[in-house]
Amino acid sequence: MKFSSTPQSAVTGAAWSSRPTAASSAAAGPAAARRRLLKAGAAAPLLVLLRPADATPESSSAAIAAFTGGAPLQAGRVVFEISRLIDNGNAVPVTVRVQSPMTAADHVSAIAIFNERNPQPEVAAFNLSPRSGKADVSTRIRLATSQKLVAVARMSDGSFWHQTVDVIVTLAACIEGEVS
């Protein structure tokens, strides 16, 4: 799968679309047609850029603001466990722990994970209650590239805490259709 990357299919696509032009200018000789094809090939990398928009630091902060409702984020209380150097972005184990007594009066009500450079800024959200007993959740996620990840916890008192981590990804998830 990974070897049938888009640059190649984009080249073929360009070749096909440039065919009528090449045919109409057949009088100019096969050399001209070949030049046209080469030109189309050179333009192919531009076509590759036409893929679904990626999440950006802005869309990531917008997603976080949607989760917090604009409340300020405080650093601390959240422990975001993830390997800093990731071999394989297709399944990255993550654990989020939040320091909290988990009583009815003071507990973590939700935990959410956000990223900056996957196609979508949201990764996962967990709903907890005093019955959770412990604010400690784990899952496995996909990472498209090296980026910043944020884990945000919503407390029962309405405050929000977070931890941000920078990770390096060597083998990216969902790279098919992407150049870099």
């Binding site: 979508q120 996962a124 959740v137 496995r140 990472l143």
Partner: peptide, 18 residues
């Protein structure tokens, strides 16, 4: 316990909670 999953969750979702 509840969880909301997005496409960024790996295939064969693994979920651990208390």
């Amino acid at each position: 316990f509840g969880m909301e999953l997005h496409p960024a969750v790996a295939a064969n979702p693994y979920i651990a909670f208390h």
